[in-house]
Design a protein around this nucleic acid. Structure first.
Lengths: 217, 217
DNA sequence: CGGCCGACTCGACACCGTGTCGAGTACCGT
DNA sequence: ACGGTACTCGACACGGTGTCGAGTCGGCCG
């Protein structure tokens, strides 16, 4: 409301300038949130629960975070970073094999979010109400889409993939498909795929969409 | 809380047995909800707003609906029914042309939800918190998936489509893709497709996935 | 007709969660 | 010893939800 206040250096996404002593409390709040989310949905967790869990009073909570949502956003930020890193590592590992690289990237993302189901559900429930969560998510998806689109363009350029709609458009559709199917499968929503089939099915759709068949050439 | 009270006959989803006089009030609440949703998100609409808009007091609202969410659910129910009907009509109209029938079905669903954006957003925001909304949505998706799967099986049986993963698995992935891309595009979330390209892009993915190319044979 | 019953209505209340304000305490550098 | 800054919390105001109980009103049955 008052000033733009530029991101403080050292803060991951610049939520607040680091303190030295209160750092422990901040961590305690985060840890409490993660633990409670494993037990019940975000809507059943109050600021008071978070504060008590961290051994502080409710007003003190507000010294560290502006709201319950901000806690989840911080947590989500970390997981997103983890997913990005793990995906990048998988891509690096796969080298030139396009099929393997897409499979690896997909697997990395799936595993990261599967390892944080509770948080993922919480983030999903904030999606509608929090512009910050939406923005963060857009940013991640945008990165994945951009990477996918340039991979498709590369395959087309070397004649391995046929022409068709703009690569970016296909990339948008394919990445949102992944997002939704992974989410649905992990959260038990129906209709879903069996966890074991997920990778194969999504990969088939990707390959057929990009190559017009089950692989390059 | 008291008795199971079986669905009253004549009620779409059997929210409550129909009254004769109160019927108007119920309609007024529904109409108010639809109008207010056009102006602001569901979270900024209180039961009091709904009641005042319908010309009744807040306690009286509770005579008609158990909660704000139930109002949205009722509205969603209608739109879903509309989408189903419109989709079925498109399918009937297209006859044997598979490509045309998928395009028509897709278009019908997209148009129905585009015509009720406000409600759709409200439903999306309830998705996380309301089991009923999730169940209704599962039911719709399940129907679409089942129809898609049997269409794929038919194409495979007549030799027009190559074998691959179980038809149902492909159908699950493709239908969730549609759901998400349509939703994202309609709600302005990024990354999205241009509204005009949506149909072509999704259809391309469908055809390539099912036929391993851009069309039957 | 008179009385009852079920449909419907609302004022008042209890409750809960949020966010803020202002009065502290404790420690640090000067 | 002093002033400031980091931190803490009791108490409050607020806004929303859902319920309770006392009422009105109209139809219809005896």
């Amino acid at each position: 409301m008052a000033a733009p206040l530029p991101d403080a250096p050292g803060a991951g996404r610049g939520r607040r300038p680091r303190r030295t002593s209160g750092d422990d409390r901040e961590r305690a709040i985060l840890a409490t949130a993660e633990e409670l989310l494993g037990q019940r949905p975000l809507s059943d967790i109050s600021v008071d629960d978070l504060a008590r869990g961290a051994g502080i009073s409710r007003p003190t909570f507000y010294f560290y975070f502006p709201s319950k949502d901000a806690v989840v956003l911080t947590l989500l930020d970390r997981v997103v970073e983890e997913a990005r890193a793990s995906r990048a590592a998988a891509l690096r590992r796969a080298g030139d094999d396009v099929r393997a690289s897409w499979r690896g990237a997909l697997e990395a993302v799936r595993d990261t979010f599967a390892a944080h189901r509770a948080l993922t559900s919480a983030a999903a429930s904030l999606f509608a109400s929090s512009a910050e969560v939406r923005a963060l998510w857009s940013e991640v998806m945008e990165q994945f889409v951009a990477e996918t689109a340039s991979a498709i363009d590369a395959e087309r350029a070397r004649g391995a993939a046929p022409p068709g709609p703009p690569a970016r458009d296909l990339a948008v559709a394919l990445n949102w498909m992944n997002e939704r199917v992974i989410h649905v499968t992990a959260s038990g929503q129906q209709p879903a795929l069996a966890e074991d089939d997920l990778l194969d099915v999504l990969l088939t759709v990707w390959l057929r969409t990009v190559y017009g068949g089950d692989g390059p050439r």
